[in-house]
């Protein structure tokens, strides 16, 4: 179709609808967000528990965080392809890689959040007659929430990036649409899918940012 070669100017609403439909971008978006959500939920559960665990075992906290730091330095595509033999092609390795990247910010922020709670609150809680368990659940965890959400927000960005790359290993999602566009050199497809992917990521990041600000304001941090 030569219409697609007219360049940026001709990208009108009708083209947009056509590009959207021929590339089944609704489906792609659903795939994208499904992988994204699964990865984020898994990473949050594992990361927060790991953070709590490290908090209870300060001795192994540093080595563990260093290990996660190392994972962070591994470039994303090599990590993805290294997971292929174990998890096969598709969404499996994509989700696992996203979780691996997201663990560091979530775990680290949970751990530091818990550890660095202002001791004056712990002291008064103890004086009021809260048990150590109550202090953890009613004081330490809620007070580290802004910090934990901060870690989650970083994880959201990482995950969006990896999920998009998943297209390269047949995981579907918006990355698949980008690949189709690049391989067939369909400029409109690339533009629509690229901008939509970016916009989606910015929207999610923005929402997380709002939650983070809210918490900080409510806790009187700013």
């Amino acid at each position: 179709m030569d219409k697609e070669h007219k360049g940026v100017d001709s990208l009108l609403l009708s083209d947009l609808v056509e590009v959207w439909e021929t590339n089944s971008l609704t489906l792609r978006t659903i795939e994208h967000l499904t992988m994204f959500s699964i990865a984020i939920v898994l990473a949050s559960i594992i990361g927060i528990f790991l953070g709590l665990f490290l908090y209870s075992r300060p001795k192994i906290a540093h080595p563990t965080l260093n290990l996660l730091n190392l994972v962070e330095t591994i470039p994303d595509i090599p990590l993805l392809v290294l997971l292929l033999p174990i998890f096969g092609l598709g969404s499996g390795p994509t989700i696992v890689a996203s979780v691996l990247y997201s663990l560091l910010p979530i775990t680290r922020n949970t751990y530091t959040g818990l550890k660095e709670v202002d001791l004056k609150y712990v002291d008064i809680a103890r004086a009021m007659g809260l048990s150590e368990k109550d202090i953890l659940f009613k004081v330490r965890i809620p007070l580290s929430l802004p910090m934990i959400v901060g870690g989650l927000r970083i994880a959201l960005v990482f995950t969006m990036g990896v999920v998009t790359l998943g297209g390269l290993i047949a995981a579907g999602g918006l990355g698949a649409a980008l690949i189709a566009g690049i391989q067939l050199y369909k400029i409109n497809t690339i533009l629509v899918a690229g901008l939509w992917t970016g916009l989606l990521a910015v929207i999610f990041d923005g929402l997380a940012g709002i939650v983070e600000k809210r918490l900080q304001r409510r806790y009187g941090i700013w």
């Binding site: 960005v157 990036g161 998009t164 790359l165 918006l174 690339i190 992917t197 970016g198 990521a201 910015v202």
Partner: peptide, 20 residues
């Protein structure tokens, strides 16, 4: 803001502007 945009989207968007 830009930090949030996936790298793949950035790489892809360069193609219509500059080719490969």
């Amino acid at each position: 803001l830009a930090q949030a945009v996936p790298s793949f989207a950035v790489v892809a968007i360069v193609v219509p502007l500059m080719g490969i």
